[in-house]
Amino acid sequence: MTIDGIRVEREGDIVTVTFDRPERRNAIDYVQWQGIATLFNELADDHSVRGVILTGAGGCFSAGADISDFETTRATPEQGIAYEVAVDAACDAITALGRPVIAAIDGYCYGGACNIAMACDFRFLSPTARMAIPAGNLSIVYGVRGTMRLLALVGLTEAKRIFYSARPFDASHALRTGFADAVEADPVAAARAWLEDVKDVAPLSIQGAKAILNMASMPDTSFNGHAADEAIFRALTSDDYKEGRAAFAEKRRPRFTGD
């Protein structure tokens, strides 16, 4: 699909999604939030995709939600609630994608962009990356699901520090506190290398593990044991499970298709 200000490119079985409004530091407007949800729901239906990289153009991941958009999209309490629903839908669609998603972050990653980054499986940062959740500078309470994602990553005290101070923190601090998983000179290249290294792992195994771990890590989501059992059963009855056993017996690399 095409979204104004967001580029979607595919190389082999890896998709790169790039926020591309460098003149606005890749700030995300309301229409783009809606488009992100649609995009990742469409990617979920394409089983040939083995991984996704989220990044930003012009040396900046994203300055977050486009505040200049708020007078028309978030001026009333009703609009504010609808806006949060769109943000949650975008981030939940990223989290729900049954393949690995890596945020490759350079420059600013502020506000709502942190929510997007936290919705990814991993965050690879450049040494010059700067993160912040400055909701307190706008008298905004960060959304519940984004707050829970931050808590799961960095713990209670660090999450409070980030929210209470509204101040930026750098890549080394992010790595030390658990917000980041790696600091790399070229985070996009590092993300691609990581995805290339794991793309031969059985897709249904990754999808099932991701779904169970995501449910277990979000306190506002009731653990759906039936869904977990379905993921396990689907893998056990798949052609890939037969292929995995055959490859083991024949001492060769398995060729998984996600079926």
Results as ranks from 00 to 15, higher is better:
residue 3 I to M: 11
residue 9 E to K: 12
residue 17 V to W: 07
residue 18 T to W: 10
residue 22 P to L: 04
residue 24 R to I: 04
residue 25 R to Q: 12
residue 26 N to F: 09
residue 26 N to E: 00
residue 28 I to L: 07
residue 29 D to K: 00
residue 34 Q to K: 14
residue 35 G to S: 02
residue 36 I to V: 15
residue 37 A to K: 09
residue 41 N to S: 08
residue 41 N to D: 13
residue 45 D to Y: 01
residue 46 D to N: 12
residue 46 D to C: 06
residue 46 D to W: 02
residue 48 S to N: 07
residue 49 V to H: 02
residue 51 G to S: 09
residue 54 L to F: 15
residue 55 T to W: 05
residue 56 G to I: 08
residue 57 A to D: 15
residue 58 G to S: 06
residue 58 G to A: 02
residue 59 G to F: 11
residue 62 S to G: 03
residue 63 A to Q: 10
residue 64 G to V: 10
residue 65 A to H: 09
residue 67 I to D: 13
residue 67 I to Q: 11
residue 68 S to W: 03
residue 69 D to Y: 01
residue 71 E to W: 06
residue 72 T to V: 15
residue 78 E to A: 14
residue 81 I to N: 06
residue 84 E to D: 13
residue 85 V to M: 14
residue 85 V to I: 14
residue 86 A to S: 14
residue 87 V to P: 03
residue 94 I to V: 15
residue 94 I to D: 09
residue 96 A to K: 12
residue 99 R to A: 14
residue 100 P to N: 06
residue 105 I to R: 02
residue 105 I to L: 02
residue 108 Y to K: 11
residue 109 C to I: 00
residue 111 G to N: 14
residue 117 A to T: 11
residue 119 A to N: 06
residue 119 A to Y: 06
residue 120 C to V: 04
residue 120 C to K: 03
residue 120 C to M: 02
residue 128 T to Y: 03
residue 129 A to M: 04
residue 129 A to P: 06
residue 129 A to I: 01
residue 130 R to P: 01
residue 133 I to L: 15
residue 138 L to I: 05
residue 139 S to C: 03
residue 139 S to D: 14
residue 141 V to I: 12
residue 144 V to C: 00
residue 146 G to Q: 06
residue 150 L to E: 08
residue 154 V to W: 08
residue 157 T to N: 12
residue 158 E to C: 01
residue 160 K to H: 11
residue 162 I to F: 07
residue 164 Y to A: 12
residue 166 A to Q: 05
residue 168 P to L: 05
residue 168 P to E: 10
residue 170 D to G: 15
residue 170 D to F: 12
residue 170 D to A: 12
residue 171 A to C: 04
residue 171 A to F: 04
residue 172 S to H: 12
residue 174 A to Y: 06
residue 174 A to N: 05
residue 175 L to Q: 07
residue 176 R to G: 07
residue 180 A to P: 07
residue 180 A to E: 03
residue 180 A to D: 05
residue 184 E to I: 03
residue 185 A to M: 11
residue 187 P to M: 11
residue 192 R to K: 13
residue 194 W to Y: 11
residue 194 W to G: 01
residue 200 D to W: 07
residue 200 D to N: 14
residue 202 A to K: 07
residue 203 P to F: 00
residue 203 P to V: 01
residue 206 I to V: 13
residue 207 Q to M: 13
residue 211 A to G: 02
residue 214 N to W: 08
residue 215 M to I: 04
residue 217 S to R: 09
residue 217 S to K: 08
residue 224 N to A: 10
residue 224 N to F: 00
residue 225 G to Q: 13
residue 228 A to D: 02
residue 229 D to P: 02
residue 232 I to V: 15
residue 233 F to I: 07
residue 235 A to D: 01
residue 235 A to E: 04
residue 236 L to P: 02
residue 237 T to V: 05
residue 237 T to E: 12
residue 238 S to H: 08
residue 246 A to M: 11
residue 247 A to K: 10
residue 248 F to N: 07
residue 250 E to C: 01
residue 255 R to V: 15
residue 255 R to L: 14
residue 256 F to C: 05
residue 259 D to A: 13
